[in-house]
Structure formats: structure tokens, C-alpha cells
């Protein structure tokens, strides 16, 4: 191994035409401490949403255990879906003890790599993968979206609201189903426009869809569409500048800032990916991770929630509290699709 590395270093030095000086050869750093890593999906580590939240969770884990970045916790980014498997495999080879795949499309790759590295623990967010060494973490987005539906239906002046989905897939359908159920629990006759952008990274499409919905008379839109949702904010801000009273319900994180300076964010549905990652990493470190478990984070587990923003009226807040306790107690069951 060492010899190979030296040859490789020499080749690299020669090829680049830099002065000699052998490589330091520090890659196969054998870690004796417990070490956790995550692979971000195509969105990148700074996507202001899902991946970023997961990384915040890992950083919190690092802080809990007084670790430095890259010594005990780290991340790898992926440029395309092709990169998921090499990234996962590289981390497992490098001796990581727990490897996260952030996003539902990691399912097949985690399954394959988990089969090859039976001594490494894996975890996937937003999907379920069978396997003794895989922990699956999913969220009850429908419960958070249910609350958003209640807020939208109670705060709308026109009894007309909208939902923009990134793509028709299970996670997004949970958002949609919960939102619809929540709104209809307040007003069964409410008009809800539903449209999908077929893209998670196209703000211009989000803006076009929002323009259509606001134009037809909706005054509150809930986007669950990643970066595409930013376009919904842009459209709402433009309209508010022109005196229209429209607003947006944020998703994944508290998106109050996205709505500034026109302040169009009514509230946000929060999905605590960070908490799930932190909890799982700590459990694994303490040896408390159960084999092949699926963990579902809902309202009850503080995995999803809604921001009690000052823009929500007292009456709505009271209704929210009641709905929350009903969902937590199981009195209300929110549909998933």
C-alpha cells in the first residue's frame, strides 16, 4: 500500500510539473475514535434546506462530543447521482463507524454498500432501506403540513390557497396530503390549487407557477419544492410591493428571512433533519443504535412542527394548539397521500 502511494505521489508531482517533494500519504488515516460522516445529495451542503440541516445536526453532534471537523465528523458532497455509491463506499473504506445518506434517492446505493460493509452502520433520511446495519429515518411531513393547511385556511381572505410540489413523489405527497387535509378540516369548500414543478432547483418555474396561482386569486401558497420554492417567495414579494396582500408558507426550515424585506412569510413547516441526525449519531456512539430500525419523526417526537409566527392570529394559534394535541394523542390521523 505504502509503495503504491509513493508511486502515485510521484506520478502526480511529475504530471503537474511541480517541484519534487514526496506526498505526505495521510489518506488511510486509521481512526481509533468513533467517527461519523454524511454524504450530501446533489443539492450540496449549503442548500439552505435539507443537506444544510443535516450538516448542522452533525456539527451539533460534534459540539456535544467536543470534536473537530474532519476528526470525528465530516461530509462528502456529490455532483450527481452517480457519485453516491463511490462516496458511501469511500467513507466505509476509510473506517467511518456511521455513514449517513441524506435523501430518499440514496436507497439503492445504501443497500448495496451496506451489504458490502457489514461492520459499518449506515443511516438514510427520508426513505426506508432493509438491512441489519441500516437505520432508516423518515418524517411525518403530513403532520406538519396539516398544521400549515389549518393556518392557510384560517388566514386566507379569499378561501383560495395553493400548493407547489417539487415532484410527485412520496415525500412531497405527504406534504400535499397533510396540507389539503388541514385546510379542509377548517373549510371543506376551500379552493386549493395544486401544481408540480418537476424540478427541485428551478426558482424561475416556481415563480411562474406562483404567478399563475396568485393571478387566479389564491392569496397563500405553500411550496414544498426545495430551491424551486424560492421563486414562489420572489413572486410573492413582487406582488406585495405592488400592494397585493399575498403570503407564503415556508418549508423545512424557518424561512422568515426568505420573505424579507416585504415580510411575506406567514409561517414555516419545520422538518428537524438536524435533530434526527444528531440523535442517531449520539445513539450510535453510545452503542444504543438498534439493528435495522426505522425511526419516524412526527409531531409527537418533535421531528416536525410549525413556527408560531407573530403573523398568525390569536384565533388560529388556539386552533393550532388544539390540532397539535389531537394529532399527538392520535385523535386525528393525518392522511399520507
Amino acid at each position: 500500500m505504502k509503495k503504491k502511494q509513493v508511486i502515485v505521489s510521484m506520478m502526480s508531482v511529475a504530471t503537474v510539473g511541480l517541484a519534487a517533494c514526496g506526498g505526505s500519504g495521510e489518506k488511510a488515516d486509521q481512526k481509533d475514535q468513533f467517527s461519523v460522516a454524511m454524504v450530501a445529495d446533489k443539492g450540496g451542503i449549503d442548500d439552505k434546506s435539507f443537506n444544510q440541516s443535516a450538516w448542522e445536526g452533525l456539527q451539533a453532534y460534534g459540539k456535544d462530543n467536543k470534536l473537530q471537523k474532519n476528526e470525528g465528523f465530516s461530509y462528502l458532497q456529490s455532483k450527481s447521482q452517480q457519485d453516491y455509491q463511490p462516496n458511501l463506499s469511500r467513507l466505509a473504506r476509510g473506517g467511518e463507524d456511521l455513514v449517513f445518506g441524506i435523501g430518499n434517492t440514496f436507497n439503492e446505493d445504501i443497500k448495496t454498500v451496506a451489504d458490502q460493509f457489514k461492520d459499518t452502520q449506515f443511516a438514510i433520511i427520508d426513505n426506508v432501506v432493509e438491512g441489519k446495519n441500516v437505520t432508516s429515518i423518515t418524517f411525518k411531513e403530513n403532520e406538519g403540513a396539516y398544521l400549515a393547511g389549518i393556518v392557510a385556511a384560517m388566514e386566507t381572505k379569499k378561501d383560495h390557497i395553493g400548493f407547489v410540489g417539487g415532484m410527485k413523489m412520496d415525500v412531497i405527497e405527504r406534504f400535499r396530503a397533510g396540507f389539503e387535509a388541514g385546510a379542509k378540516s377548517v373549510n371543506p369548500k376551500i379552493k386549493i390549487d395544486i401544481q408540480y414543478a418537476e424540478d427541485f432547483a428551478a426558482p424561475e418555474k416556481g415563480q411562474a407557477i406562483a404567478a399563475g396561482m396568485y393571478g387566479k386569486g389564491a392569496d397563500i401558497i405553500f411550496p414544498a419544492a426545495g430551491g424551486t420554492g424560492n421563486g414562489v417567495f420572489t413572486e410573492a414579494k413582487n406582488r406585495k410591493k405592488n400592494g397585493e396582500n399575498v403570503s407564503v408558507i415556508g418549508v423545512d426550515r424557518d424561512q422568515k428571512e426568505e420573505g424579507m424585506p416585504e415580510d411575506v412569510t406567514l409561517t414555516s413547516v419545520i422538518k428537524r433533519v438536524d435533530r434526527a441526525v444528531e440523535d442517531t449519531a449520539n445513539a450510535a456512539k453510545d452503542g444504543k443504535l438498534e439493528d435495522g430500525k426505522t425511526i419516524r419523526y412526527g409531531l409527537k417526537e418533535d421531528g416536525v412542527d410549525i413556527v408560531p409566527s407573530e403573523k398568525i392570529s390569536k384565533k388560529t394559534l388556539t386552533a393550532l394548539e388544539k390540532a397539535k394535541s389531537d394529532v399527538v394523542s392520535g385523535k386525528i390521523e393525518v392522511p399520507e397521500q
Binding site: L18, K27, R93
Partner: peptide
């Protein structure tokens, strides 16, 4: 940069994988 290219070439030729 030397460590960087070293790692790059290791990442291409360093392991059968």
C-alpha cells in the same frame, strides 16, 4: 496543492475500487 493532487491521483489509481 501537492497534497491535493496527491489525493486526486490516489483517488483515481490508488485502489482497485
Amino acid at each position: 496543492p501537492i497534497a491535493g493532487f496527491d489525493q486526486l491521483f490516489y483517488g483515481i489509481f490508488g485502489e482497485p475500487y
